[in-house]
């Protein structure tokens, strides 16, 4: 059995008598992807902040493995516009970073061309990848991703999730991800933990969607879900300028039989 990186033991947090989190038990092991879901205000971010040491728990404790090294990807990045900063300089701020790793890491995430760009002009998806690069440069064995696909379109989300999975496979690190969208995360995740102040239910994706507590929060799948997942059968990818990249010489004849854009 792979080693447990973090164990939350009966974590409780309250502010001025208001209970934010109550009796949370969960754990993350090496190589495991755990997705934390819950409605707004359910305490997801608070739980993450406790793990990161940015907030103290009122009761219970977090047991960290002695080798635990966290790579944290915040929800968004606000940098004051008066501070001129290129992506390269932003990434060089990682504590104890090996600067030779910056470009290869960016290239692995498909954004090598952004090395000299100012951080203020990045798009939402580019910012997410730069933040992911920063988390990776910390040489983590646990990636903590706070709403990693927020503000990214559906295609981008699929790409980002594929990327996260390939990183997990390569580094064998644990991944703890926060999401308010169950459906797209489910495919890759090992364990889903659904919280709303307390742990409503947890288990494999299929288990959670069928649980009455999940259905009470998010509705019965298929019943009042207006969003369905449509699988594009793309046989091509786009480069940065939107041109179609293909190793096929017949680049423009991509498959239109099943998808009508």
């Amino acid at each position: 059995m792979s080693k447990r990186l973090v164990v939350f033991d009966k974590i409780g947090i309250s502010f001025d008598g208001r209970v934010l989190l109550d009796n949370i038990d969960m754990s993350i092991s090496e190589g495991e992807i755990v997705t934390l879901i819950g409605p707004n205000g359910s305490g997801k971010s608070t739980l993450i902040r406790t793990l990161l040491g940015l907030q103290d728990a009122t009761s219970g404790e977090i047991v960290r493995h002695k080798t635990l090294r966290i790579g944290y990807m915040p929800q968004k990045l606000h940098i004051d516009p008066t501070l001129p900063l290129t992506v390269k300089h932003f990434l060089a701020l990682v504590r104890g970073v090996d600067k030779r790793q910056i470009l290869p890491t960016l290239e692995k995430l498909g954004i090598g061309h952004l090395l000299g760009s100012q951080v203020h002009v990045l798009s939402g998806g580019e910012t997410q990848r730069v933040l992911l690069a920063r988390a990776l440069l910390n040489r983590p064995n646990l990636l903590v991703l706070d709403e990693p696909v927020q503000g990214v379109d559906v295609n981008g989300q699929v790409e980002l999730y594929n990327l996260i999975e390939s990183i997990r496979n390569e580094l064998q690190c644990g991944v703890l991800m926060v999401s308010h969208d169950l459906h797209l995360v489910m495919a890759k995740t090992d364990t889903v933990v659904c919280i709303n102040q307390h742990v409503c239910c947890s288990g494999s994706p299929q288990h959670v969607t069928g649980h009455p507590a999940y259905q009470a929060l998010f509705g019965v799948p298929g019943a009042d879900e207006s969003i369905a997942i449509y699988a594009h059968q793309h046989d091509h990818v786009h480069d940065d300028d939107g041109r179609i990249l293909s190793d096929d010489s017949d680049a423009h004849a991509h498959n239109h039989t099943q998808c009508h854009h």
């Binding site: 990161l52 944290y72 501070l83 900063l85 701020l93 504590r95």
Partner: peptide
């Protein structure tokens, strides 16, 4: 310089990274 700048850019990231 580096810790000062790291804290200025993003205090939470800096703290998580151990500054």
């Amino acid at each position: 310089w580096k810790p000062l700048l790291a804290m200025t850019v993003n205090e939470e990231l800096a703290k998580v990274e151990g500054y």
